[in-house]
């Protein structure tokens, strides 16, 4: 932990530069393992210790990725997948917020709905797929429904928790000022419950991405999950791996994007007080 920064400061560099160097050294250290693994992987592939059908060389995965990109297949399939996630996320978070806020505000609503809600959330999303298929078929509505279900649960639970944790005093103040329900929600509840809400939305989004891949693997003629299945059917594991990389990067971007948004919103909240 200490050896690198110490040696840097021994050179008596200006602190800003030293900070950069520390960050750089950390970055390099973090790259060591992946680079080493990559080299080992290339070596294994070149020496054919594992047959290339099971472990295609990293260069081939990269080629496959570039080809996906340049042929436009990546953009079109990713676009379809992202649209599905968007709709599913919108529907699921709207339903989740409504449910969560209602249950959070009113103990009566909670008493009536929470047990049912918990029962619904007990069955993992994959368990719902057959039922949904029987009801809506395998069209777009299936994908949206599955994603929405995956999003709704964490959003609702976190919304409820967030509201539950709003200090009672806040409500009393609102009552004192004779705020309407809507105004109470908007001016008092939402700002106070925001961190928990944001947390729920983030969890929801990451669930949405997972559910998308799950449902596209099952029955689809397009989308990023379908690309994987296709790569596998055609015995092109490099395509499968390239798609995994894409799924990982998109997952990261979605997560980081929402985190940025969250930070932005929270600073807004802080300045609002």
């Amino acid at each position: 932990m200490t050896s690198i920064p110490r040696s840097v400061s021994a050179l008596r560099l200006p602190p800003v530069l030293a900070g950069y160097l520390t960050a750089l050294s950390r970055g390099l250290l973090a790259l060591l393992l992946p680079l080493g693994l990559l080299l080992l992987w290339q070596l294994i592939a070149e020496q054919q210790w594992i047959s290339p059908q099971l472990l295609p060389p990293p260069t081939q995965v990269l080629d496959s990725l570039l080809e996906l990109y340049s042929s436009g297949e990546l953009a079109s399939n990713l676009g379809i997948s992202l649209a599905r996630v968007l709709w599913g996320f919108a529907a699921g978070s709207a339903a989740g917020l409504l449910l969560g806020v209602a249950m959070g505000l009113s103990p009566r609503v909670e008493a009536y709905l929470l047990p049912t809600f918990k029962a619904i959330s007990l069955v993992p999303v994959i368990g719902w797929v057959p039922l949904f298929i029987l009801f809506v078929g395998i069209e777009e509505s299936l994908k949206v429904l599955v994603i929405a279900k995956a999003v709704m649960v964490p959003v609702a639970i976190n919304a409820m928790k967030g509201i539950r944790n709003v200090p009672v005093g806040f409500f009393e103040v609102a009552r004192l000022y004779r705020f309407s329900l809507w105004r109470t929600v908007r001016k008092v509840v939402l700002p106070a419950a925001l961190p928990s809400l944001a947390n729920g939305l983030r969890l929801g989004l990451s669930n949405a991405w997972m559910a998308l891949v799950a449902v596209e693997l099952l029955a689809s003629s397009e989308g990023i999950g379908y690309l994987m299945v296709y790569g596998r059917q055609l015995f092109q594991l490099d395509l499968v791996m390239a798609t995994m990389v894409v799924i990982g990067v998109v997952g990261l971007v979605l997560d980081q994007g929402l985190q940025l948004l969250e930070r932005h919103l929270l600073t807004w909240r802080n300045s609002a007080y």
């Binding site: 298929i133 029987l134 078929g137 395998i138 029955a219 003629s221 299945v229 296709y230 059917q233």
Partner: peptide, 20 residues
């Protein structure tokens, strides 16, 4: 066409349920 990848059993089932 909208070509959907399904194994034989799934494809036959999907036909009877008119999913395809």
């Amino acid at each position: 066409f909208k070509s959907i990848n399904m194994d034989t059993a799934t494809g036959n089932a999907a036909l009877t349920t008119k999913d395809v």
